[in-house]
């Protein structure tokens, strides 16, 4: 599964990179996004708004891993 690391980015680049990352993924498909806690709210809310789904969440030492299923 492709992995996108945005732990070094801040809003709005987090949003832009996730959007571009999802463009590379076939539909239907999944993308794993690695992000910091600060980015959680904006990234998840924009994903939901754009019709994608967060299908799994895991955590490693303060970093979150979101499995994003691309919306059709």
């Amino acid at each position: 599964m492709p992995l996108l690391d945005i732990t070094g980015d801040v809003c709005p680049m987090t949003f832009v990179k996730v959007k571009m990352g999802l463009q590379q993924v076939p539909t239907p498909g999944t993308l794993t996004v690695r992000l910091k806690e600060e980015a959680l709210k904006n990234v998840i809310s924009s994903l939901k708004t754009e019709g994608h789904r967060v299908t799994n969440v895991s955590r490693e030492e303060g970093i979150f891993l979101l499995e994003v299923t691309k919306g059709v």
Binding site: L40, K41, I44, N56, V57, R59, F64
Partner: peptide, 10 residues
């Protein structure tokens, strides 16, 4: 709910 912890984090 999967108790993923996102709500508590945000």
């Amino acid at each position: 709910c999967t108790f993923c912890g996102v709500c508590q984090a945000v």
